[in-house]
Design a protein around this nucleic acid. Structure first.
Lengths: 211, 211, 211, 211
DNA sequence: GATGAATGAGCCTTCATTCAT
DNA sequence: GATGAATGAAGGCTCATTCAT
């Protein structure tokens, strides 16, 4: 692919390059059909070097998931940090960060989904994500709790967190769906509107409808 | 597996048996790791007979997805038909039908998710589902529109449908997640509560909170 | 090789055929250069069927060594049984049985030697042989002890056994040696003479020189 | 391995170092499992430099065998030279030199055996050894002939040489054998006793029993 | 219909060898 | 001289598929 692949490269540079190539192949062919040769070709390298850098296909895939999970975590955590001091602003930032298409390109979403499907029979994948997932859920639940307290809503913060996380997951699924002839696809813009409408419906005293 | 596998069985019976075996393997090992031999063993038969009945592994998997999609469609359509005449009752029936644990066992959910991950690079899978999916989305959107009209809500029926469908999808993902040490899992009961709370939030004039 | 290889064969027949093919390749190319494809080609079959019958290359080789060791054990034990009742006759039969060219063809000897060289780093090979080896050494030592007692020789039966076993091993090595331009090779006939001369020298009251 | 590996070393020093490393790996893993990377690691160097110094793996192994054969030759030849003037003393020196454990460590013996097993399909190895082997056999046979003439033994000097050489080879095999749980191993001390007893039996007028 | 031996394509992985630094 | 990233040729093994029985 990359005709300008330098013959030599630093260890971490090459690893990152191969991880990116894997994501691209994952998005194009899915998890089951991905081969080491595909990844190598995508990166303009040989299959041998993939094993050289990652020891095995399994470890390459684990490294890819780890990279995705870490990137995801950094992204939402950064957005929350940059948000205003109020719980409402932070929750909004947390949820909308999932639909920042400059980071979560269709390619990356497709790669994520590919891993979801393989969590069965690959407990490792769960282990890679569970810690970071738990952090996000905890952050989300804390923010929900604050809003509930502030607004006096008669809702369970834990279930609110589950609701919002499920909504985000479901929207990702919709964004990644390759509606073949389906011109009627979910877009990132839709996702934004949906998230804001859901916040307005659940926390009417914090979020104005149509904001 | 099943020691009492009858040696003779009608064509469709055997196909159904093999489809069930495939679902079981899919749930246990995931899509990528599934082999024809696994399915055969699960069904207590030989690999040859699997190919004999389905011509190829690809067609077996397509048949499985078709069976799942058809079953899914029949289930929600039946529930909507059995529901009361009001749009609110029908929408509620439609959404809650997804969490009927007698039909959507963890095994079946896991099989579904396995297919989701492979939709990339397997356009066939999209084709199998798209028609039935569209029907459901249309039904859902129509019901949302009726509620919007009845209740005078300032919400877009299309986005409401997307919201509810995404929520259901996300909850399925959560139900299927095999949180290893994660005692804090989403349950079908949680899903019911979440759906009802979401309906109450979005359509307050149709659904009482805590119903 | 065998153009008349039947398409189907009983399990044990095929295993024996593949073991023979492996011995042939071992003799021709040595242990390190042997490939599953070589064995398959030698047997006129595909590589897949080798793995099908033996699970792995390692297990194939272990099975070959096991077959060789068992055959060896049966052979000398049979010869001893057929020999006369005296310890002298039995010891003679035991030692000469190693040089029965109808069983220990150059090919088989070469295969044996190939395994000897790989016993390092393959403890399994030791385990396969050690039991049967010990039996032979015990039998040999008992016979030596009887001769020592009968003849009043001032020799240690254990060391006598070691001497005779080492001599047999060394002669096998010489028989298997492929003296390239070396027309002066050890022959089975030499081996017979050497064994008899050694017996005559060690047990002069039991074995006449030149017998 | 050796942390004190000097970065700079004369060509021959480095070659010798790599040959020693190869012998160590050969003894530990056997011939078939030996890799250039193993040798490099053992020597505390990189794989590239091994090839640089020996051009190829094959030539490295040939150099190792050559080194072993030369060392072996020098050793016995030196011992014979240092021995007394009589044929009996020289033959004794020749044979016992094989069991000088200060030179023929278990490691070196294991390396030798590893090569024996690969002589099949590697005619080069035969070529490397045949010349020096022939010299030893000639020397041994000449000494045997002298003893036969002196003692008037009714034995063929050629077969006597074969007998003694086979005995030495067989004892080496026994010394190198890694009897796992086998506490009953051949020792160098056993080998000495066996050689002396064999000489006493074959040449009673030259060697006293129990000497 | 059903089995299981057999095939062959393709994949992951190893490893000797090259080469830029 | 020395390193280590990189290659490419095999090799072992898996697995969908075929076919004689």
């Amino acid at each position: 692919m990359d005709a300008a692949t330098p013959r030599k490269a630093g260890r971490d540079v090459r690893r990152a390059q191969l991880i990116d190539a894997t994501i691209a192949v994952l998005a194009r062919k899915g998890y089951a059909a991905l081969t080491v040769a595909d990844v190598a070709k995508e990166a303009g390298l040989s299959a041998g070097i993939v094993i050289f850098h990652f020891t095995s296909k399994d470890e390459l895939l684990a490294a890819v998931l780890h990279a995705l999970a870490t990137e995801y975590h950094r992204h939402w955590a950064g957005r929350v940090r940059q948000a205003g001091p109020s719980a409402a602003e932070q929750l909004k930032a947390l949820l909308l960060s999932d639909f920042d298409i400059s980071v979560f390109t269709p390619e990356r979403l497709a790669a994520w989904i590919a891993f979801w499907g393989e969590t069965q029979g690959r407990p490792v994948y769960d282990q890679i994500c569970s810690g970071l997932d738990a952090e996000r859920q905890a952050a989300s639940e804390i923010l929900c709790r604050e809003l509930v307290v502030e607004g006096g809503y008669a809702l369970d913060p834990h279930l609110l967190m589950r609701t919002l996380e499920a909504l985000c997951d479901g929207l990702w699924l919709g964004l990644a769906a390759r509606g073949a002839g389906n011109s009627d696809r979910v877009t990132a813009s839709d996702a934004h509107k949906i998230i804001m409408a859901a916040l307005a419906a659940l926390f009417p005293r914090h979020f104005a409808p149509g904001a």
